[in-house]
Computed example of a mutant assay.
Amino acid sequence: MSLSDFIRKKRLGAFLTQQDAAKLLGYNRPQFLSNLERGNRKPPIEVLKKMCEIYSIPEEEMKAEYVRQATADAIYNAHQKWNNNEETDKNPK
């Protein structure tokens, strides 16, 4: 499960609409939260900590999901860089 899916699942588990959750997080419109839940933006840690309070999530659970996602992203990015470098080596300028 991605961090964005986790966040969405926890919001729904707290019986909050995106509008309600956004207001509790200090945002006037739900667009910010929508972008987080669709994976279009990375959530700031401060927002994740506030979500823990609002959605009643233990901080350790949120931290574990955050670290898992960050690790998966780092592995993916490292593979991409490695593969891009191989392409560059095959096609020198």
Rank of each mutant, 00 (worst) to 15 (best):
E61L: 11
Q80K: 15
G13W: 00
D5Q: 12
V47C: 08
Y66K: 01
Y76A: 13
K93E: 05
D73C: 10
E61D: 10
L3R: 00
P43Q: 00
A72T: 10
T17R: 02
Y76T: 09
E61I: 11
C52W: 00
L24I: 05
E65K: 15
T88S: 12
K42P: 00
A78V: 04
Y55N: 02
K9H: 12
D20A: 14
M62E: 01
A22D: 01
F15C: 11
E87W: 08
G39L: 02
S4N: 13
K42V: 11
N77M: 15
V47H: 05
P92G: 01
G13I: 01
T17W: 03
R38I: 06
S2E: 12
A64N: 15
K93W: 07
S2K: 15
V47P: 06
L12C: 09
E60Y: 09
C52K: 00
P44C: 12
A72H: 13
W82E: 11
C52S: 02
K49F: 04
A78T: 07
D5E: 13
R8G: 00
K90D: 02
K49N: 03
S2L: 05
K23C: 06
E87I: 07
L3D: 00
N77D: 15
A72C: 07
N77C: 12
R38L: 12
F32G: 04
M51H: 06
I45Q: 10
L48Y: 06
L12E: 11
W82Q: 09
R41D: 05
T17L: 04
E59H: 11
I57C: 04
G26N: 07
D89H: 09
I45S: 11
E61R: 06
S34K: 06
S4Y: 04
E46D: 10
N84L: 06
G26Q: 05
K63L: 14
K93C: 07
L25M: 11
N77H: 13
R68L: 07
I45F: 13
L24M: 11
Y76F: 15
D5V: 08
L48N: 03
L12N: 06
E65S: 13
E37C: 09
S34V: 08
I57Q: 02
Y55Q: 02
A74V: 03
A78Q: 08
A21I: 06
T71C: 05
P58R: 05
S4M: 03
E53N: 07
N83F: 13
L33G: 02
L48T: 10
Q19R: 14
E87Q: 12
N83K: 09
E59R: 10
Y76W: 13
K63F: 13
K50C: 04
